[in-house]
Computed example of a mutant assay.
Amino acid sequence: MDQWIRLLTVTLLALSSIAAHAQSYPDRPVRIVVPYVPGGTVDLVARVLAQRLSEQMGQPFVVENRAGASGSIGSDAVAKATADGYTLLVQSPTLIAHPLMVKKVPYDVIKDFTPISLLGSVPMVVAAYPGVPADNLKQFLDLARTKPKEISFGTSAIGSPMHVAQEAIKHGAKLDIPIIAYRGTGAALNDVLGGQVSAIIDAIPSSAAHINSGKLKALAVTTKTRIPSLPNVPTVAESGFPGFELVSWYGLWGPGKLPEAITKRLAEETARAMRSPLVAERLGAQAFIPSGAGPTEFSNYITKEIAVYARIVRDANIQID
């Protein structure tokens, strides 16, 4: 009996210590890793979230860009970090899609990360350099068919939702359009804006200003229906790909085995942040749909999305050496 009492006492003390730690968390700056160069939508969402969490939780949440290997370098740094809540990751579906098409990644998406919150989602747009002689996706693909050496796609990363959408369109159109991978959306956008690359599929927030200014030409959107901010731009589904739909979403993760109390605290604060006027002001006008879904719902969402991306990767036979 004494042994059981001692065990119960130790367990209660441990739980009490974890609860106290969560109550005082954070007591120093928190690092949010973005595994891409600045300038893309992942970076934008992370910076808006960091600003709001800093205001809510009374400690700096600092974004650190660690680009490379299609997001794997920064993501791996989080997977291998101490699970204490002071190193977090903001990522897109690239985290789950990249391992489906490459032979080896340095982490296990399920075991090495703790899902905290689904932040939200945005439509994607097929956008071209204005000098490309095509005003919609059908014309762009016809151009690629007749002048294949003149047409190329840029993408933020191998395995990104943008890359997967490009591969799906290539497969559906039976075309071999070159896809050039960059270290993030910002770098890919720069080359499309400069005319070195013909087009990009990008999340609306990072391309909207360029489309509005005429520096990019919107050819199609990847949602099921047209979007209010681009009412005259047809969907990919309308452009010869019935049923096509793919959006980009963003999530907050910690390292694997993040304590439940800290995960819960972060999830609650993140949900509050996603409902804030700051998010509505900075992201709402760019078709960002905030979520703030917590760990369980986010985990279930990830499981469903893995199945969606696995099907696309299989059907399009996307394999990267």
Rank of each mutant, 00 (worst) to 15 (best):
R145F: 09
V63Q: 09
I204D: 07
A77N: 08
K224I: 13
A144D: 12
Y36S: 14
E281W: 11
L95Y: 05
N300C: 01
A50E: 05
V48T: 15
T11D: 01
T82E: 15
S299Q: 12
R31D: 11
K147D: 11
Y182W: 10
D191Y: 03
G195I: 07
I110N: 11
L15P: 00
T82H: 05
F288H: 03
R314T: 15
R183H: 13
P277H: 13
A218Y: 04
W249I: 00
E260P: 02
A293G: 00
Q319G: 02
T155I: 06
N65E: 11
A271I: 01
D76C: 13
P259K: 01
G195E: 13
R145A: 15
K80E: 07
S54M: 04
P115E: 06
A220L: 08
Q91S: 13
F153E: 05
V63E: 12
L175F: 01
D142E: 15
K304A: 15
H210R: 12
K80I: 01
V122C: 11
A208H: 11
E268R: 04
K111D: 13
Y86Q: 12
K215T: 10
S75V: 12
A261M: 08
I180V: 14
F288S: 04
G214R: 06
L12Y: 00
A316V: 05
H171R: 12
G120Q: 05
